[in-house]
Write a protein that binds this DNA or RNA. Structure first.
Lengths: 203, 203
DNA sequence: ATATTTTTTAAACACTTGTTTAATAAGTCT
DNA sequence: AGACTTATTAAACAAGTGTTTAAAAAATAT
């Protein structure tokens, strides 16, 4: 716990933690105030409203999340290795912030297109030339011809869902946290192998 | 819209619809009352509380959902064809109730093990002998050796996530509802091919 | 028809919600 | 030092929450 933060920082830190785990409707301004060691008036003093605080936080989280992707896209590897590292990094990132997939799906789903345009991550990804790289690899016959939406869906499905389903699987199979985390590492291998095999049939 | 329902039925119908799309915290007793053409007192008259109404509904939904799985498990096909049909049925079911994956993940995650035990679906699935069938297929070398948790995760990840991510993908790629639904059918083919190839390498 | 139970209604309850107010404290500047 | 801005606090606000009450209406039984 960092204790030497400004009041604004303490509020944002607590709010981030709480919003990610409980969502916008799952918590209250007072909970954020208490958890940050402040009070409700201060929350609105620095952020005007619960909604504006939330929008600010969701932007930060999405930005930070996509940065880890962009790093891989810009790197100097072959496409197949980029894919491997991408999956690796995804599991690494999500192990650290397991609630983020749920957060993204639930809360980003409520926002409309204008919100995504403001974040301006589309152009940043465009600049990495990853799409061109995929296109040429598909033209080569090196990579399976599959559209970008499905490619993104395959990757996200297999990386994000296992973290989203954790509470459910734990309850169904009577597993402990540690046990499930352990299993996720095994699952990562399956996912990597399956996706690479499918996307690069002539590897 | 069925109009010739009993009062209790009208409440349950409206509550099911609303709970599935907005979750427990995302709606109010008054919304359920209005939407069902009744009033708040009647909701509590028939269901005692919002919480008990919710538990009753979530049980029904999970039961109905797992029934479609059990039907496939009990059928008379080869394991590989069961897998194909399973994916087919999953996409079919989820096309009809696209909000259910999110509902299950979000709301079932809050419940503890005792709740799942009450539903008693584990034994019902056990009775289909599907697990034994998988075990022998793996012993045969017909199927890849992979544990049941990962098998379940692979299937659910690739079937459920595309429906959960619909609002996000729509916003990112500026797609319309119809266009995304169309794409889901293409994606289903990818998912089927990928999973079958991976799980049955010597097909 | 009368009595009794079940269903429906409108109003109220106690509590929580996000937000604002007005007063006080702390900090900054000349 | 005092004047002025910024930060913090406790209290209040109006609106919304789940739930309950008590009375009326409808249905059922005697």
């Amino acid at each position: 716990m960092k204790r030497d933060l400004t009041t604004e920082g303490k509020i944002k830190e607590a709010a981030t933690r709480i919003f990610i785990t409980k969502g916008f409707n799952g918590c209250t301004t007072r909970e954020i105030a208490n958890e940050s060691g402040t009070n409700v008036a201060l929350v609105n003093y620095y952020f005007k409203s619960k909604g504006q605080l939330f929008d600010q936080i969701i932007s930060s989280v999405v930005k930070e999340f996509t940065l880890s992707l962009i790093d891989v896209f810009k790197s100097n590897m072959s496409l197949i290795n980029k894919m491997r590292i991408l999956i690796e990094k995804e599991f690494e990132f999500l192990s650290k912030y397991p609630e983020i997939p749920n957060f993204i799906i639930n809360e980003l789903g409520k926002k409309d297109k204008s919100f995504f345009d403001c974040l301006d991550i589309a152009t940043e990804i465009q600049n990495t030339k990853i799409f061109e790289e995929v296109a040429t690899a598909q033209a080569n016959g090196e990579m399976r011809r599959i559209d970008l939406v499905s490619l993104m869906l395959l990757l996200m499905s297999n990386c994000h869902f296992p973290f989203m389903a954790k509470p459910m699987i734990k309850a169904i199979h009577s597993m402990e946290d540690e046990q499930y985390t352990e299993h996720l590492m095994i699952h990562k291998q399956y996912v990597t192998e399956m996706l690479i095999n499918y996307l690069f049939p002539n590897r």
